[in-house]
Structures are given as structure tokens and as C-alpha cells.
Simulated assay, not measured.
Amino acid sequence: MPQLSLHSPIGPLTLTEEDGKIISLDWGWGRDQTETPMLCAARDWLDTWFDDPKAAGVFPFPLEPMFGTDYQKRVWTALCAIPVGTVKTYLALAQEVGGSARSVGQAVGRNPIPILIPCHRVVAQSGLGGYSGDGGVDDKRWLLTLEGAPIPSRG
């Protein structure tokens, strides 16, 4: 599977493609570097997004998570509907897709395409909640600040 890495403000990121679709985004620099048209376009979009998320708009290329249950995929689809610069609680998302706040949190934590499937926009009722990116909650806070989203305080 072709991979392409990029430098970002939150560290190196690696995109992976299969059959013309993005299947994962990982923290760190990938071993293999292949400049396919899809990976170059996705890298360029991310560069634009890191400059101005609102100007970049919605990720315009096909995403197909490399794994996931039907429930997880339903949660990930709902994440893509959360607009730039806004947040939604795990509980509110659970009410939309079914399940509990905990099951939504587990699905969010297993998201194989973070940022592009914007799991950083989901927060706890009492604060930010967790984040499985390399920088943890600091990355989540940074991404929300970049988007101009409200940063929940601990209640």
C-alpha cells in the first residue's frame, strides 16, 4: 500500500492509500514514500487545512477506514458531519448514532483516519476528554484552537 508522509504543526503524519482511497493517517514518518496522485492531493489538502481549516473545506477525497465494525463506521460517518470550528459531546453523538457515550468514545479512539475523520471535535461533558494522537490531549486542544472551536473547561 502506498504511503506518503508530511511535516505538520503537530509532528510528522503518514497517509496510506489503497485503491484510490485514503485508508489511514498515522503519527510518525512512514518507511515507504510513494507520491501517488491521491496521496499528493491529500497531502496538499492537509497543508492547506493546517494553514486555514475553514478555507480548506471538507476533505474532498474518498476515505475508507482500513478496519472497523459497522457501528464504528457509523460513528466515523457522524464525525464527518461535525462542522469545522464546532464540538459535539460523546453523549450527543451517542444519541444520534445509538449506543452509549462510552461506546462512542471507544469508536472515536479507534478512528484510523484522524483529522480527516475529525475525532478531535468530540469532547466530554466535563472537559476535553481523551485523544489518541501522539500528543494526546495537547494535540486535541491545538487542533480545536486551530479551528477556532470552543475549548471546554473542566466542570
Rank of each mutant, 00 (worst) to 15 (best):
P114W: 02
G133Q: 02
V137M: 10
C40V: 13
G127S: 08
L25V: 15
L6A: 14
A81F: 04
N111Y: 08
I10K: 07
P83A: 07
S24T: 05
Q125A: 15
L6H: 07
R102Q: 10
E18D: 08
Y131C: 14
V108R: 11
G136Y: 01
Q72G: 14
R110K: 11
A78V: 03
S153H: 10
G129K: 03
D26G: 08
A101L: 03
L146H: 10
W76V: 08
S5Y: 04
W27V: 00
G148M: 04
G11H: 09
T16P: 08
E17I: 09
Y71C: 12
V137H: 07
T16D: 11
I151R: 00
P60K: 09
G28L: 01
G68W: 07
E18L: 06
G85I: 01
I22V: 10
A41Q: 11
D51P: 10
M1I: 07
P118V: 06
L93Y: 01
T145M: 01
G130V: 00
A55C: 05
Y90D: 03
P2H: 00
R141I: 13
D47M: 13
A101M: 03
Q3W: 02
L79R: 03
P83H: 00
A42W: 06
C119Y: 00
K88R: 06
P37G: 07
P2K: 02
V97Q: 02
A41D: 08
K54Y: 04
K88S: 04
K88N: 04
P114H: 06
A55K: 15
Y90K: 01
G127T: 00
D138C: 12
S132G: 13
Q72C: 11
I113F: 10
M66K: 13
W45P: 14
I10Q: 03
L143R: 15
P60D: 14
C80H: 07
A42I: 08
